[in-house]
């Protein structure tokens, strides 16, 4: 099998009336990589996918696959496999006919079609379901058919548009891992769209966080989680405590109300910065202490989730390993955080 393609977008614009759905988006997806586009609804991520698939024409910019400009190519000529949000299986065709569809459209010979449909159905563990109609399948099975149909013709790219949204939690987790396994095995360049940050962290090689038609940050999953580039990314991905303040000398950030935090990163004095503290990074150290009243305490099995309110009016979310007794609401708790666990970002 030929190595999967690489995709490049060069300052792509798309406007709907006054709304800038895509406001100069540039990105590159490497061959065999799974890139997740993560963003809230209305961030432009679905428009981005449609531009790549060819269902939307951009107002400006270029889409390149392996260096070839496909911006004005119709969808049928792009050789891109896509799994739609609602699967879009053809209800009048059987599982076999659905999966055979893209091959028939490419005028592949009948024996070859039968062979590849059989192989692909086996790959998604649906062998034996050939003659069923989509409505006779469960949600997870329909999803597998949609996936089989999208990969059976060895597409240059695979696009997944929030495919797990309709599945229940357990099945969703199974399917996520299965899609990832399949994608790795076929080394298929894949763009995955979701608004679920947890899903993005599980599945991706890299994540592009989108908001208001622009890419806020594009980086590996750990980078996005540990070192978000902006308050938006920090807030959107994972639980977070975000504070804003002014950098002073020697790695000290002064927050509102005069509270100071010692941070590891050197920032020019006088600069306004944002500070991110992940709830699970708090410990019982005395450095950068937050002491306050417990407003809310929840037992989550593996951890306690505690909401603190300090005397100088800071609301802080803390996660502590679930050992011993859950702190009582109204009681007092003190936690601290090591300077190198604090992430400082520019504002």
């Amino acid at each position: 099998m030929a190595p999967s393609a690489e995709l490049r977008l060069e300052s792509v614009f798309r406007r709907f009336g006054e709304v800038r759905a895509l406001d100069g988006v540039s990105l590159a997806v490497e061959s065999g990589e799974l890139l997740t586009i993560l963003g809230p609804s209305g961030s432009g991520k679905t428009t981005l996918l449609k531009v790549v698939a060819g269902f939307e024409k951009p107002d400006g910019g270029r889409v390149l696959v392996d260096g070839q400009d496909i911006t004005s190519l119709p969808p049928a000529k792009r050789d891109i496999g896509m799994v739609f949000q609602n699967y879009a299986l053809f209800p009048h065709l059987t599982v076999r006919q659905n999966v055979a569809f893209p091959l028939e459209m490419r005028n592949v010979a009948r024996p070859e079609i039968d062979k590849r449909v059989g192989e692909t159905l086996a790959l998604v563990e649906l062998a034996g379901y050939d003659e069923r109609l989509p409505r006779q399948l469960s949600g997870g099975q329909q999803q597998r058919v949609a996936l089989a149909r999208a990969i059976v013709f060895n597409p240059r790219l695979l696009l997944l548009d929030e495919p797990f949204g309709a599945l229940d939690r357990k099945l969703r987790e199974t399917m996520q891992l299965e899609v990832r396994r399949l994608q790795r095995r076929l080394a298929l360049t894949t763009i995955f769209i979701t608004h679920d940050q947890e899903e993005a962290l599980v599945l991706s090689d890299r994540i592009a966080v989108m908001n208001k038609g622009t890419i806020q940050q594009i980086a590996t999953t750990t980078e996005i989680y540990e070192r978000p580039a902006s308050g938006f990314v920090a807030d959107f991905v994972g639980e977070s405590n975000i504070f804003y303040g002014t950098a002073g000398a020697d790695g000290v950030v002064t927050l509102a109300g005069g509270r100071t935090l010692n941070v590891a990163r050197k920032v020019p004095a006088g600069k306004n910065v944002g500070v991110l503290v992940r709830p699970e990074r708090f410990s019982n150290t005395a450095i950068n202490a937050f002491e306050g009243e417990v407003i809310e305490a929840v037992y989550l099995g593996s951890s306690f989730k505690i909401r603190l309110k300090t005397a100088d009016d800071f609301a802080v979310i803390v996660r502590l390993p679930a050992r011993g007794k859950l702190p009582a609401v109204g009681g007092r708790v003190s936690v601290g955080i090591e300077p190198d666990e604090i992430h400082v970002f520019d504002v």
């Binding site: 049928a76 896509m82 879009a88 209800p91 149909r149 013709f153």
Partner: peptide
Amino acid sequence: FDRGLEQAAEGLGASRLRTLMRVTLPL
């Protein structure tokens, strides 16, 4: 009629005419 099905057909390589004959009219 769910036009998403026509989009899906085109994305899978069907021309307008084949989309009409294989998907739209049968449905």
